[in-house]
Structure formats: C-alpha cells, structure tokens
Design a protein around this nucleic acid. Structure first.
Lengths: 337, 337
DNA sequence: GTGAAAGCGCTAACAC
DNA sequence: GTGTTAGCGCTTTCAC
C-alpha cells in the first residue's frame, strides 16, 4: 500500500500562507484583487500542499456546480461517441465538467432513474441526445429547474435544439440516385424517434416529387449485423437496385449481405449510408454517404446551453447544421434490367 | 421561457412531512431504521416536492462523493468508447457516478490539468486508460490520496491493473500465419506506451521462436487513413505476404491501401488486426483479428477499484483477461512466390 | 426511534 | 484589500 496523504483544505492553505480563508478563495477565483505579496504566499502554499479545491464545497457555497449533464442512450456507437467528445471538448474549454447519465431505453422507470442520476450532481445545464426513442422519452420527462438543450432528433417544442438537416441531404441523395436511372430507392431505417426522422422524410419527398414508387420501409436495429441480414434478403429481390440506409454501419452490413447473396455493389445494386463513419471511405467499394459533423453538433449544443444558462431570453431556439453528401464508389448508374 | 421551479431541499421535505431533517436523511440512506409511519410521510413529501438530494451537500457532509473519475486520451475511438461504456455500466450498478477527464497527450501541462480536473470532483477512485502515452504519463503523475486502477497498457508498478494478455494472442496469430507458409510477418503499430506493447512483444517472440526474420516495425497513427497510406507502400513490396496490425482500424485501412495498390487480400497478402471491431467481421474479406472484450475490461476495472477502495490490503494487484483469436477470411495460405 | 447541535470546505455579504 | 461572520444542504455525533 502506498501511503495515503490527506487532501489539504483551504484553511490549511490559509494558515500556511498566514492569511484568512476568504483571501485564499479570492486568489483562487481571481475576481477580487489581492495584494501581490499575499497572492504569492498563497500560491506558494497551494503548491507546497498540493492543494485542490473541493468541487462539492464550492458547489454548495456558490450554488454553481460548473457541471453539465449529458443524457444519452449509448456512449460507444460512432455518432454518439463523437457527439459526446464534442460536448466534452467545448465544456472543458468553458471550464465545465461533464457527467454522463445513460438511459438504456424508453421504459419510464429507466428514464426516471437516468433523470435522477443526471440531476443529482446539480448540473447547471443538461444536454439530451435525442437520437432515438430513449433520448426522446427522457426529454419529455425532464424537470424544468435547469436549462436543457436537445441534440438532433425530432423537433421538440419549447426546448432549444440543435438539428442536423438530414431531410435536405436525404433528398439530394435520392434525387441523385434517380437521376442515375434507378426506378426507385429502397430505404432501411434504424429505430426511429417518436414520429419520423429527417432521413425518411427527405427520402419520401424526393421519391414523390419524381413520381417514383415509394417502397415499404425496411426496419433494422442499431446492430450492423442486422444490415447484413437485410442484405441477404434483398439480394434475392431483382426489383431492388438502390438502397438508402439510416446509417453507415447498416449500409456496410448491407453491402456484406448483398455480397453474401451474390450481388455486386455498385454494379448490381447501389448503396448509400448516413453519417460518414471513419471507415466508410475505406470500404471496398467506398460508401456514398452524408457527412454529419457530430463533434460540431456537440460543440454547438454546449454553446446553445451556455447561452440559455446566462441569457434571460433564450437567444436562438433552433440551430441547424447542414450536412454534406459524399458521392463515392458504392453508388452508380443503374444497370439495364 | 418555461417557469423555473426551485429545487426542494431536505428541510422542505422535513417540514412537509412534519419530521426533523435527520429523519429524512435516515429514510434516504435506509441504514438506520425509521418508523413505518414516518417513513411513509417522508416518502410522500419527497414525491410531492419532486425532491432530489444534492450530491454536493452529501459529499461535503459524508466525505464520500460516490464518484469515480476516468482519465482517458480519447472517448470516441472504439476500444476506448467500449471500455468507458463498461465502466459506466458497472459503476452505475454500484451506485457510482462517473466523470470523464480527457488528457489529449503526454505534455506535462496537459497532464497536470487533466489530473486537476479529475480530482476536483473528489472522486473516491480513479481509473486510468493506459492504452497510450497520454494515459501512461497521467498514471505516473497521479496523487496517491485516492485508489487508482490502470487499464491495459504496460505493467505499472504499485498500481492495481487489469491487463489483456495481448502477447499470447499475438504469438498465436503469428504462429498460425507462419504455419500457413508465410516466410515472416510484418507488423504495423499504433502509438505505443512507454516501452513496448504486448502485441509487439508476442509478434517478435513468435518470429524468433520459429527462426523467422524480424522485419522493421512500421509505425502508424491512430487514424485508419494512415493504414491506407502504409498499404499503398507495402503493395509495392513483394517481400510482404502477411501483416499483423496494431488494431483493426489500421488493418481495414491497410487492406484498402493494398487494394489501391493492386494487391488482393488474402490471395496476395494476408492481413490480421487486433480488437475485433464490430465492422471487422463484415468487411470483404472479413478480418482475422483478436477479440478483446473492452467492456469487460471496464467492468473488471471498476470491480478492482471498488475492492481497492474498501479493502486495506489490495486484494489482487493484477488481473488478466484472455483475448481470443478469430480466424477469418483475410488470412490464407501463402501464395507460391 | 428521534431530534438538537455541530460541522464538512468553501463563497458571499459585510464591515473596516 | 482584508478579515469576520454566516450559511450553502446535507450527515454525523450524541442525548434522550
């Protein structure tokens, strides 16, 4: 066992520096001026004692926790993880610490526990990743004692939100596919928020605008392997020549499933995804997709939250990011049928 | 603006329930018995006021924060994200909240700031992801006022650690490749911790044991695109028939680079990775790799930390997980040269 | 079982 | 500028 050295407190520092406790507090918070002489002594004492202020005591006394809570259903999937990274980075730059509260699904009891966990740290603000039903449900049951920002998902009334304009990008993608001679474009979704996500809306709009048939939506899970299963089925269907997937992982799984079923991408079937996962451009064939800047989404979420925390009026209720279509090898002109 | 309802405090609850503040505290912590009648009244008051205890006040009064800090260089890359998910899950089950403190690199000032951030919340324990130089440097400059556990990486003296036995798995992989007729196996590393990682050690050991030549190590970054760049170079080198990569992302990038350079995997060159990334089995060809259970690593880290926090003696200094080699399509018998 | 009193480590308000 | 005094919302003695 290494020896455990007890943490020094502010009064240890004050005593050692020969000043009062509030004076130490003043040099720590550097808002009220302190004479250069004392400042130096205090700084030296802090150094010598390896003093670190207790966040708990500060929070209690100042009623400001310098904490932000993230509520999310998952922390390790690409879009989520990148968003969280963006949040943490922006929060750290603004001198806030982040806690994560995981809400596994939209079961009321699970949601309640996650909300309790998120609020137990007295965060000054909360960011909810409304990418899926779990986040969506959480947003609807959040207390109003603290500013909240929603990230992505369906439009939520009364809550500031940062959105990615998925719909326009999906339209552009589908329109492009139709122009390549595809009769229609099939669509595979990941579990949707209450309502319909922008990808699906944009997909349908583009088909209708072009007078193309609107096929039944195929539902996948978040697991890339479910894309593979769908691919094996679709491989047998000669009607299918182009597929838009709800995310890249599903699209990558789909491509594998199509190969399993003896079809070639893009010669037989074109495939497009959504997200621009770091591996998508490396796939053979590289995947046509929509680049979403998740870390920017997180950063904008923090900026919006900080604004809501300081301003009386909520300056800017809705922010929208424009994603970009990346045409790559997985999509091509339709083969003659 | 929605109306902001002020958070109820414990004395609000006490007053409403007609009991003293400590009594409310007792029902909250359910350690000292409280009469059924009062218990009910208190619970009702809590419900009615939507009361949530202040973690800061609890921490201050009890000197127990119920917080664990994770220090990591990155939160969104696969192995890291999965480990963090495993930690969060296990911590939540033990009723601990997790904060993440990001240390971008091993610059002393950066490390110092991350350590300060990690300790500012008075965590009861700290978990360091020593996957890379940044985590490694952090581990070496951590105060000893609180139990610490290191996850993966090089063996750190005096600190409980959970390791994955990469070395044995790498040996098995390389041995298998040699048995398939490859003259030797090249090796691409990701940025290593101080010293050498187990993958490299195992790779070298297997080559030496078989009397095979030990090629120069090729260094990549964490970016999968760097694997692609390496692949384009190696494609031109007829000596190269088998490559072991430090992780799957690099292996996937490498395969793409080899394809760019006109080589086929596995017919011309066998490729193996490390991690079993969720997309590796979907690749064409599917990637031979070593399955590492990162979320289990995180869970074991929490278990070890909780043990170190409660026990006087550090029960079990070192825990080792056995990863499993997954033979798949990207490796094959060496072609005749 | 239960309440009164003290105090955790800090910041805020006030006097000087 | 600086020290003194309160008090943040809880838990922890300690009587009863």
């Amino acid at each position: 066992m290494t020896t455990v050295k007890k943490q020094a407190t502010i009064s240890d520092v004050a005593e050692r520096a020969g000043v009062s406790v509030p004076t130490v507090s003043r040099v720590l918070n550097q808002v009220v001026p302190v004479s250069e002489k004392r400042r130096k002594r205090v700084l030296a004492a802090i150094e010598e004692l390896d003093y670190r202020p207790s966040a708990a005591a500060r929070t209690l006394a100042s009623r400001r926790s310098r904490m932000l809570s993230i509520v999310t259903s998952n922390t390790s999937r690409y879009g989520y993880a990148e968003t969280i990274r963006g949040i943490e980075l922006a929060a750290r730059a603004a001198d806030y610490t982040v806690t994560i509260s995981v809400v596994e699904n939209d079961d009321p009891e699970v949601v309640r526990r996650a909300v309790t966990a998120a609020f137990s740290q007295s965060p000054e603000g909360v960011i909810v990743l409304t990418f899926d039903p779990a986040g969506d449900a959480t947003l609807r049951s959040l207390p109003t004692s603290v500013p909240v920002v929603a990230l992505s998902g369906a439009r939520a009334d009364g809550v500031p939100q940062v959105l990615i304009d998925e719909s326009t990008a999906a339209e552009e993608l589908v329109r492009g596919l139709l122009e390549m001679g595809h009769r229609t474009v099939h669509h595979i979704t990941v579990p949707a928020v209450h309502g319909e996500d922008g990808r699906t809306t944009g997909w349908r709009a583009a088909l209708q605008e072009a007078g193309a048939p609107v096929p039944d939506i195929i539902e996948a899970t978040w697991d890339p392997q479910s894309g593979r299963a769908v691919g094996r089925e679709l491989a047998a269907d000669p009607q299918v020549t182009a597929v838009l997937c709800g995310n890249d992982e599903i699209a990558l799984g789909l491509m594998r499933g199509l190969v399993d079923g003896g079809r070639r991408v893009p010669q037989d079937i074109s495939v497009a995804g959504f997200d621009d996962h770091p591996l998508s451009s490396l796939w053979v064939p590289s995947l046509t997709t929509v680049r979403q800047d998740f870390s920017e989404l997180g950063a904008r979420g923090v900026a919006t939250l900080l604004a809501a925390m300081s301003d009386e009026a909520d300056a800017g209720d809705l922010h929208t990011l424009r994603p970009e279509v990346q045409w790559r090898e997985s999509t091509a002109v339709a083969a003659n049928q």
